[in-house]
């Protein structure tokens, strides 16, 4: 299994797409963090001198989690897009082992995405706080917990993406599905049904990374007050891990065993 995981990690390093996704994740994390920091203290937005204001800026980094899921989708569906599944399964005919190795490799890549998102948003947030002459109202311990949350959420979102890509196989559909789910469906469901909002996968990933519930939602649902509370760190981690395992298990039983013709 170690050889297989090394092979999958090497695949990631030897094509351009993962680097392109990483650059997009980093660029958008920086953009959204800067936008949040720029509008802090205006109208009803909390100023950077408060914990809530700084937390809003840190939310910009959770966009990287979305790209971690996309990375996962491309890792598995890319085998069918480029017709490399034949070569992969000739080397490793036990296909569930390939799926596990891809999930592990995806999780490593996703963790890097999550960490980059945290690093950029935290840098932007603390930079704006310092530039404005404030003192950061979020402790080092909390920032460290956010870092751990970003890394764990990035890893698990990528593992979920690998499962989705294995299940759907069509890369474009998988990538679009991830964006539509996170940007539209979760935002709509989350604002309509507050009680289930903490359990929605992308929402759980963002709260794991330190975002307030609804803070990472898009459109009218963004920052909508919720009567529910975010899941605790361990519960959110367990939920995302369970989702990754269930999707991969379904894929392993259905699409992964299909003929490669």
């Amino acid at each position: 299994m170690t050889r297989l995981i090394k092979g999958e990690l090497f695949k990631l390093r030897t094509t351009r797409l993962p680097f392109g996704l990483f650059a997009a994740a980093a660029g958008l994390s920086a953009l959204f963090s800067i936008l949040e920091a720029s509008r802090a203290g205006t109208k009803s937005v909390a100023p950077l001198s408060t914990a809530a204001g700084l937390n809003n800026v840190l939310t910009g980094g959770v966009l990287a989690l979305l790209f971690a899921a996309v990375l996962g989708v491309t890792i598995s569906s890319g085998e069918f897009r480029h017709e490399t599944a034949t070569t992969t399964y000739l080397a490793t005919p036990k296909r569930s082992r390939v799926l596990i190795a891809k999930s592990v490799a995806g999780a490593c890549g996703g963790a890097a995405f999550g960490f980059a998102g945290w690093l950029i948003a935290t840098g932007v947030g603390l930079g704006f706080v310092a530039a404005d002459g404030y003192t950061a109202q979020i402790s080092d311990a909390t920032l460290a917990r956010y870092a751990a949350g970003h890394i764990a959420a990035g890893a698990l979102m990528a593992a979920i993406g690998v499962g989705i890509g294995s299940l759907i196989r069509a890369q474009l559909a998988g990538v679009l599905g991830v964006f539509v789910w996170a940007v539209v469906i979760e935002s709509v469901i989350g604002s309509m049904f507050n009680s289930i909002q903490p359990y929605l996968p992308y929402t759980a990933a963002t709260t794991l990374a330190g975002s307030v519930l609804g803070g990472a939602a898009f459109g009218p649902a963004h920052g909508a007050s919720s009567s529910a509370s975010p899941l605790p760190f361990a519960a959110a981690t367990a939920l995302l891990a369970a989702i990754a395992i269930v999707i991969s298990a379904i894929a392993a039983r259905t699409t992964v065993v299909r003929d490669i013709s």
Binding site: L4, K6, G7, F10, K11, T14, T15, T84, A91
Partner: peptide, 16 residues
């Protein structure tokens, strides 16, 4: 994979 070099393709196979 069209974006991978021949040597890297073989390195993956050798690795696995």
């Amino acid at each position: 994979h069209p974006g991978r070099t021949a040597r890297n393709h073989l390195r993956i196979e050798a690795m696995v």
